[in-house]
């Protein structure tokens, strides 16, 4: 098993640090899967059972690293799976925004470590400083790999482009002070509604003119006492009730420069938020629906 990689460009280093920060906000632990052409960050919910992971992030190595060498477990199993503390990783990468280069390698010290060597410019001289972080990792044995397979989710009923994440997060954070659950409505007509209902208030924030990527309707509402939304054909609307805190955490990903964010909904069951960046990073978050 071998892994070493080098990053020298400022843009990708900043993005990489941002992505790791988001992951550390979502979970204390994460899995780093090293494959020949892609790095994966995977966060799974401890007690989720067969449910998809909470987060699935793909980073194409060619866009980020100038050097990238790896040798997997054996000829048949060409990947490396490492378990590590996402907080340790994000704290080590705080200085990456001003660094000249980052070297990452898998080392054997007292325990297996992901060693980060960060080269920092000096403000007073031409010389640089080297900062080394050793992050203890657990090498995940082969028999447990299946727990971190690519999520196999049901086909979404709708995929709709999200408005600016920052705007969305402000609104969700205001709603969170009033209720712990948010209902997300999406219609084939390009409308997205965030709604909370409590004894005190019903608050709905409605976005319109959003691009609909895919719609697999009609939606069956026969089993629910759904109230109709503004004279729209209900068979073209689906919804899902989710935890407001989880939604807000994903939305803090607005720090990562992104091209677009898609929201896919499996009616009443699942919300998949997927953020695409310029460098072809895909950051996906899976929030399962709350059903009473």
């Amino acid at each position: 098993m071998k892994f070493r990689a080098l990053m020298v460009d400022a843009g990708p280093m900043r993005e990489f640090a941002n992505i790791v920060t988001i992951i550390s906000k979502l979970s204390k632990e994460c899995i780093l899967r090293v494959a020949a052409d892609t790095l994966y960050f995977i966060v799974s919910d401890d007690n989720s059972g067969p449910a998809p992971p909470v987060l699935w992030c793909e980073i194409p190595q060619a866009m980020f690293f100038s050097e990238y060498q790896m040798v997997g477990l054996d000829d048949e199993h060409k990947d490396i799976y490492l378990g590590l503390s996402s907080g340790n990783l994000s704290r080590s990468l705080v200085t990456l925004k001003t660094a000249k280069s980052l070297k990452m390698k898998l080392t054997k010290k007292q325990c297996p470590c992901l060693t980060l060597e960060i080269e920092m410019p000096s403000s007073t001289s031409q010389q640089t400083r080297n900062v080394t972080h050793d992050i203890p990792v657990i090498v995940i044995p082969r028999k447990m790999w299946s727990e971190f397979h690519e999520p196999n989710t049901p086909d979404p009923d709708i995929s709709i482009e999200l408005p600016a994440l920052k705007q969305l997060r402000t609104t969700i954070d205001r709603m969170r002070t009033m209720a712990s659950e948010v209902i997300i409505w999406a219609s084939a007509a390009g409308r997205l509604t965030l709604q909370i209902k409590t004894d005190m208030a019903k608050v709905s924030t409605r976005f319109k003119e959003l691009r609909v990527e895919a719609f697999e309707g009609p939606i069956d509402h026969s089993d629910s006492e759904t109230e109709s939304q503004a004279n729209e054909d209900m068979s073209r609307i689906c919804y899902c009730r989710v935890d407001a805190k989880k939604l807000s955490m994903f939305l803090s990903a607005d720090q990562v420069t992104h091209n677009r964010t898609l929201c896919s909904i499996v009616h009443k069951k699942l919300v998949i938020l997927c953020l695409h960046t310029e460098e072809n990073v895909r950051l996906q978050c899976f929030i399962s629906g709350i059903v009473y």
Binding site: P163, Q167, K202, V203, S204, T205, K208
Partner: peptide
């Protein structure tokens, strides 16, 4: 500043 969004609230 943005015109494709609005919020309506019913406060008891």
């Amino acid at each position: 500043s943005v015109n494709n969004v609005m919020t309506d609230c019913e406060i008891s």
